[in-house]
Write a protein that binds this DNA or RNA. Structure first.
Lengths: 164, 164
DNA sequence: ATTGCAATTGAAAATCGTTTTCAATTGTCG
DNA sequence: CGACAATTGAAAACGATTTTCAATTGCAAT
């Protein structure tokens, strides 16, 4: 690893090693917060920005990539695995993966037709997972337009707004 | 429209009407900034937060939805149109759409198998568009051997480059 | 019309995730 | 060993978005 980084013009430091290791020990879809937590359990002196910078670095050297599910939190995914899509549960925030090979094929063809050079594919399905469907009894399944009943995303600890 | 909103418990106001109208006059992938600009050309007294709030409202009543392309800027898309994917050029920030029906079919099947209730699909291809490839001569493509097919309707929308 | 009240507004301040600044420290290479 | 660029930590800066708050304004019931 030290070598790998050196060839790219980066130095190895204790903090960096710790952060890299922690990142790869955490599973998939790691958030900075999670990584930060894990790292400072080992060494509380490691700074906020150092974790950030190194997470970025991991991406820069091609070992991970950002995954944003429009909820404001960026997650980071190792790139070692096959390309994959994500099921995002809007209720419990869980993330499940699925195979996207056939989809990537389609997109590749589509891109070629436009002389567009694809570098990265992103395929997401937002909805409600099996467990949450049971709990909440929500039924927005079919291809119908989502019910726009006001006051959704309940049960989740959102901002405690009650004013107005 | 006034009626439509009233039934949902919202009032119509001059600002609101102006903002709604402006939003629908602007094309696709509208940013708050663009909308704000357009609105305050008509009435400079309209506040920042009012535009924001109403854009959110447009989404809430189901007339538009957020489209985040991982570059920090949220765009808003009318929901009247067919579901579509986005080609996102990392160089010039242009956005081009493509049909995703076959892809949605696959995702729907995939979701059904997991008893996942899909509400929204997001399909993106990030890469370099035809024009930028010529300019920069970049070739970072993967699996794509870009046969120079007919480049048809490429509705390329230039975007002001916002640094970050 | 007049009234009551919740919805709405504008301005400013507050959040939140992320990035940058800066001085001090530490790898790496000659 | 030194020099020097890369790295670090803390704090401040940032940009997008949200909230606060007092003042205003639709709208429904009088």
């Amino acid at each position: 690893m030290r070598e790998f980084l050196r060839t790219k013009g980066y130095k190895m430091t204790p903090q960096r090693e710790m952060i890299f290791r922690a990142f790869f020990e955490l599973g998939e879809h790691v958030t900075v917060e999670e990584l930060y937590e894990k790292v400072r359990k080992i060494d509380p002196s490691v700074g906020h920005s150092t974790v950030w910078r190194n997470l970025k670095l991991i991406c820069e050297v091609g070992l991970a990539e950002e995954v944003k599910m429009g909820d404001g939190v960026t997650r980071y995914d190792r790139v070692t695995r096959q390309p994959h899509g994500h099921f995002f549960c809007t209720e419990c925030k869980s993330v499940v993966e699925f195979n996207v090979e056939p989809i990537v094929d389609i997109m590749t063809t589509e891109a070629a037709g436009r002389n567009f050079a694809p570098e990265h594919f992103k395929v997401e399905v937002h909805g409600v997972c099996a467990e949450c469907r049971e709990k909440v009894g929500r039924q927005t399944a079919r291809g119908t337009s989502p019910g726009i009943e006001d006051d959704d995303h309940a049960t989740v600890e959102e901002r405690g707004n009650t004013s107005r």
